[in-house]
Computed example of a mutant assay.
Amino acid sequence: MENERINLSSKETILMVYQGDITTFGADALVNSSNEDLNHCEGIAAALSQAGGPDVQLEIDSLRKRKGQIPIGEVVVTIGGNLPCKRLLHAVGPVAGKAAGKERVLLERTVRRALNLAELMKFKSIAMPCIGSGVFGIPVIVCSDAIVCAVKEFCSQGGKSLKTISLIDDRGEVVRAMQEAFSKK
């Protein structure tokens, strides 16, 4: 697994960028790139749901019945099941071509909400994929830049329980794009 450690601030929040499988990555919270229906039949969402086991899917089904569609930019929480995490955060990102050109803004909001929720839950570590860059069809560069912007803004606020933010993807070109986004900001 390739990784790069980037110190984001004097507050000791560390960003790690990894190439690997998020379903085997250990963190207090794992972020799932979800759709509004919490229908996890493709991509990272399907992999996390399957690896989490039937209890995760039961909780997702219950959430879907209670809440209906989850608005873009929102994040809901379930158990982690068999995943190496305390909680699974289902972050609802935009779909390319369906966000009236506001994909980047919506992605930033989604990432901020996931980070703030993890902070509220007093987690020390979080791992997230390059939300929106897979089956949602948003260009990797847009996703990477949005995630980096949101993470840097979050870290600049100081006083955080989150000490490690890990960005992870199994595609080398996505990992490089996330690393480059930090280098140019």
Rank of each mutant, 00 (worst) to 15 (best):
F25P: 06
R5S: 14
L88P: 01
E12M: 05
K65M: 15
M178C: 09
A96D: 09
A146Q: 11
D170Q: 00
F182M: 10
P54F: 07
G81K: 04
G159D: 12
M121L: 15
G134W: 00
I72R: 10
V151P: 00
L120R: 09
Q50R: 11
M128Y: 01
E36G: 05
R64D: 02
F154K: 01
A114P: 04
G101I: 14
S166N: 05
L167W: 08
A146Y: 02
E59F: 02
R5Y: 07
V175T: 11
G132K: 05
L162N: 00
I70P: 14
E2R: 14
R171I: 11
E36M: 08
K163C: 14
N82E: 01
S9L: 08
K124G: 11
M16D: 00
I165M: 01
L117T: 14
A91F: 01
D169N: 09
P139D: 13
N3M: 15
K185A: 07
V95E: 07
S156M: 07
P139M: 04
K184P: 04
D28A: 08
K163G: 15
N82S: 06
S34A: 09
V77T: 07
S156R: 13
A29N: 04
R5P: 05
V175I: 13
T13D: 06
P94C: 03
R109M: 09
I131V: 07
Q179L: 07
N82M: 02
Q179V: 15
Q157P: 02
V140T: 14
A146H: 02
C149T: 09
K98M: 05
G97C: 14
P139T: 10
E59I: 05
A46Q: 12
I126K: 00
C155A: 14
G172A: 13
S125Q: 14
R104D: 11
I6M: 11
I22P: 03
K102W: 10
S10F: 06
M1G: 06
R66V: 12
S9T: 15
S166C: 02
S133F: 01
N82D: 04
Q50E: 08
E180I: 15
V77W: 08
G137V: 03
R87Q: 13
E74H: 06
R104T: 10
G93S: 02
R66P: 03
V111W: 09
P129H: 10
V75C: 05
A114L: 15
G137N: 08
A127C: 03
C149F: 06
V140K: 08
S166M: 09
P54Y: 04
I72M: 05
L15W: 04
